[in-house]
Write a protein that binds this DNA or RNA. Structure first.
Length: 581
RNA sequence: GCACCCGUAGCUCAGUUGGAUAGAGCGCUGCCCUCCGAAGGCAGAGGUCACACGUUCGAGUCGUGUCGGGUGCGCCA
């Protein structure tokens, strides 16, 4: 339950009451009325800008209007103070009972706390990873993989119907090169000595077992035959093998996507024609000649007439070619087909997670979706910046050419899936991220994963201790006398727990999973702080042997903290730790 | 040349969709274990939010321009 949301509804209702009674003009538009949580605690538990945004329409000075509205808000349930402050804010303060109810909700909901139905079943498609099927995933892919997966988790948690999807770029010249690499390894597997591998093929060792399994299946059937005979079949074989590899890599990260869409299959079933017809019907396809790019003009530039999509009508900078000069389709054409397919499957919202190096394609893709959906379906594209892999502060050298890049699997093997997932979310997705293999394994507050896990483990520790030291204590968090929680630190902790549903909704709506990482860090800090207060002031400790009711109430608070941390980590796909080693 | 992303404390970064006196971690200084896990906590110092105009009750946040860094720019995917 998002109490800020319900409080806004109550505020709007109160103002409407004033409008109906004639205290305020009847035609005020309340859309801009907002409830937010001031950073300065002296400004109350929540504040509303209602008087500021309505002053003009009400033809009253903001502070005078604020006084009228504040009077009405004082009768809301749980409100003990409504003060006019600053230019016309109304600061609301709640009684402890209000917060005790919030804690009760959190404890009752457990690790499911914060889930909501505000998504109302909106069909959302999240496409992520979509790495070319030419080799195992490397660290760079891990970021997009985690961002996409957690984005999907968040959206699902607030009530959207989410499909997790992977787009397989299994067409084009790269697949021919993959097939040639497989054939070269296959000759090796068959006992031939094929000589040095030609430039441009995929030299990685990972093709060796694929070649062996091919040889085991087909024997020497593909030896000594012209390329045209085997290029297609071996390409198919290699793609299937690479996708198995990639699916395994993703599984290691805890990722299981629902749909794997093939570029080649889309084109083969006539998707390009369908897309072309759809766009042509809107008058968006024409034959034309593009201007050369101004700054870095390619040496071999010559004007050519090509089939173009009028993307400039939808916010793009130039119209984009969808057909190459040799008559085959561009990559963009395949992507149009794919996104039209997503639209045809009835999604209300599309989200693509891409690497930042694809930023130049955002506008044209959004233009295409806008054109194909007549502006009805938004396409949000999340660009993920590079991950700098470090080891104890030193960059880890990687050479893709030599095939010595660090794979996703290497990193997961080194630090574990949970650490990889969490760390990938500790920066906004469009910021560079340093990933230090040494630092993320440290057990100190420098390590955000550890810090949050430590808070969770401490919660578990207290609950374990309660059972041990007070064996006859009845532990039923739902029935605990929460009115015993009156300490300012306790109430502050509850206030933070209560803001979790709002944080989750906000992060989901804005497609920003990193916000949850920061929230968890702040909650952990608040808990550690409160914990240590018990060191200075023994009466604030969670376990008070001579006061069972107080202990029960505080255990409920601990259970609430544990629930929210577990809920957040659950959305991250990270297992909460109950005990540190 | 054009487009997109970024510019906030010495460093690495948040900033609740435009709110009040801009925050956290690291680093620095000084403190806190007879005590539920000190693997932690408290306090202090540290700022022209790159710069300049503009929009309004109010701008780190929105608009325009400038500077600086990154990414990309027809027949690669």
């Amino acid at each position: 339950m998002n109490y800020v949301r319900s409080l806004r509804a109550a505020t709007v209702k109160a103002i409407e009451g004033l409008m109906a009674s004639g205290a305020l003009p009847p035609d005020l538009v309340l859309d801009a009325v907002a409830i937010d949580m001031p950073r300065d605690p002296s400004h109350g538990d929540v504040a509303t800008n209602a008087a500021l945004v309505l002053a003009k329409g009400a033809r009253k000075p903001p502070r005078e209007l604020a006084g009228i509205i504040a009077q009405a808000l004082r009768s809301l349930d749980g409100v003990v103070a409504a003060e006019v402050a600053g230019p016309g804010f109304i600061n609301l303060r709640f009684d402890d009972r209000f917060w005790h109810e919030r804690l009760h909700e959190a404890v009752a909901a457990g690790a499911g706390y914060g889930t909501a139905d505000v998504g109302a079943g909106t069909k959302v498609n999240v496409e992520y990873v979509s790495a070319n099927p030419t080799g195992p995933l490397h660290v760079g892919h891990a970021r997009g993989a985690v961002v996409g997966d957690v984005l999907a988790n968040m959206l699902a948690a607030v009530g959207n119907a989410v499909t997790r999807e992977y787009y397989i770029n299994d067409a084009g010249a790269q697949i021919d090169q993959l097939a040639r690499a497989l054939h070269w390894r296959y000759r090796e597997a068959a006992g031939e000595t094929p000589g040095p591998m030609p430039e441009g093929l995929y030299p990685g060792e990972y093709m060796v077992p694929v070649a062996h399994s091919l040889h085991a299946r087909d024997g020497g059937a593909w030896l000594g035959r012209p390329e045209a005979d085997w290029l297609g079949p071996l390409g198919d074989y290699a793609i299937a093998a690479m996708m198995d590899l990639i699916r395994d890599d993703l599984a290691v990260l805890g990722i299981h996507q629902d749909v794997f869409s093939s570029e080649r299959a889309g084109v083969a079933r006539g998707g390009v024609d369908a897309a072309l017809v759809a766009l042509d019907a809107k008058g968006l396809i024409y034959q034309g000649v593009l201007e050369p790019p101004k700054g870095s003009k390619p040496d071999d530039w010559e004007p050519r007439e090509q089939t173009l999509f009028r993307s400039t009508g939808f916010g793009d900078d130039v119209d984009r070619p969808i057909r190459k000069s040799d008559g085959s389709w561009t990559y963009f054409a395949g992507d149009i087909v794919y996104h039209l397919d997503k639209l045809n499957r009835g999604f209300d919202v599309l989200i693509d997670v891409w690497g930042a190096d694809h930023g130049g394609y955002v506008k044209r893709m959004q233009a295409a979706v806008k054109a194909l959906s007549d502006g009805r379906v938004p396409l949000d594209i999340k660009l993920c910046q590079l991950v700098n892999l470090l080891d104890n502060g030193q960059p880890v050298r990687m050479s893709k050419r030599a095939g010595t890049f660090v794979t996703l699997r290497d990193v997961v093997d080194a630090v574990g899936k949970d650490v990889v997932r969490f760390v990938m979310l500790t920066r906004r997705n469009d910021m560079h991220l340093d990933f230090d293999l040494t630092k993320v394994r440290e057990q100190s507050k420098d390590n955000p994963v550890f810090y949050v896990q430590y808070a969770h483990a401490r919660c578990c520790s207290v609950l374990r201790n309660a059972v041990e030291t007070m064996p006859d204590l009845v532990i039923d968090h739902g029935a605990a006398p929460l009115d015993r929680l009156v300490d300012a630190g306790e109430i502050a902790l509850i206030r933070m727990l209560a803001s979790w549903p709002r944080t989750l909704e906000g992060a989901a709506e804005s497609h920003e999973p990193h916000r949850l990482a920061y929230f968890l860090g702040e909650l952990a800090a608040a808990f550690h702080g409160h914990w240590n207060r018990g060191g200075d002031i023994p009466s604030l400790r969670f376990l008070v042997a001579e006061d069972r009711g107080l202990t029960q109430a505080r255990l409920a608070l601990v259970a609430g903290v544990r629930a929210v941390i577990a809920a957040g980590l659950g959305i991250f796909g990270v297992a909460p730790v109950e005990q540190l080693r």
